[in-house]
């Protein structure tokens, strides 16, 4: 009979990722690059919101985008065509989220020198991306009106880690039983500090406010 030995570990499986993420943040601070982690469900309008936002910022600061998806490169192409900025596609190989190591690999493929703002469009999913710190300087998420105002109650972790919650597709509010005040109340129950910005990415309504917030954060980070 082979001898079995027990080794006590008592280590969180997220510990390494958290450390990686902190290191990445420190490196970005030194380089003066602001990394935004943008999360949402599939189909909430992340890419359209980004195009609108980037077109408001690209004359003021240099922006680059990393699109993370399980497969395809439609988002990276869409961004490049609509804004003209540098945009790359990351494939997660079936994984439902990005971690700090994958984010770092993506950043290595961007021409970071001279870039002020790097945006990571995370995999569309409200569960897993919230668990893994990507090393981003700020987290933002988009909740779209058709998803319903009760989502902050159902996915509390996602709402509690985000600095900004963008509520998209407000133009279709009359067709859905979406209660904006309730939604804000639920978000602030989970995260009193979260900034809530209602927008319509299709018409551009409200996007100025999101772009202004982002620009102010980038400037603060670079100081």
């Amino acid at each position: 009979m082979e001898k079995v030995k027990v080794i006590e570990i008592k280590r969180s499986v997220f510990a390494d990722n958290d450390k990686d993420a902190d290191n990445l943040r420190a490196e970005l601070k030194e380089k003066g690059v602001f990394l935004l982690n943008l999360m949402s469900s599939p189909g909430s309008g992340k890419t359209t919101t980004l195009i609108q936002t980037i077109n408001r910022l690209k004359d003021k600061i240099r922006v680059a985008v990393m699109e993370a998806d399980i497969d395809s490169d439609v988002d990276a192409i869409k961004i490049k065509e609509a804004t003209g900025i540098e945009s790359i596609q990351l494939h997660t190989g079936g994984m439902c989220h990005l971690d700090a190591a994958m984010t770092r690999q993506g950043l290595d493929n961007l021409s970071l020198a001279g870039t002020d703002l790097a945006i990571l469009e995370n995999v569309g999913n409200l569960v897993c991306p919230a668990e893994f710190d990507t090393g981003s300087c700020r987290n933002a998420m988009i909740l779209s009106v058709p998803e319903g105002h009760d989502k902050p109650l159902k996915y509390p972790l996602m709402f509690s880690i985000c600095d900004v919650v963008v509520i998209n597709k407000i133009d279709v509010m009359p067709y859905f039983d979406f209660d904006m005040e309730k939604c804000k109340e639920y978000i602030h129950m989970r995260n009193p500090k979260a900034k809530v910005i209602p927008i319509c990415a299709k018409t551009g309504e409200g996007v100025d406010e999101f772009a202004a917030w982002l620009l102010a954060e980038v400037e603060k980070w670079k100081k």
Partner: peptide, 11 residues
Amino acid sequence: NEVEIKEIEVI
């Protein structure tokens, strides 16, 4: 909310 490796048995 823990996700921890408590211990392992090795040969």
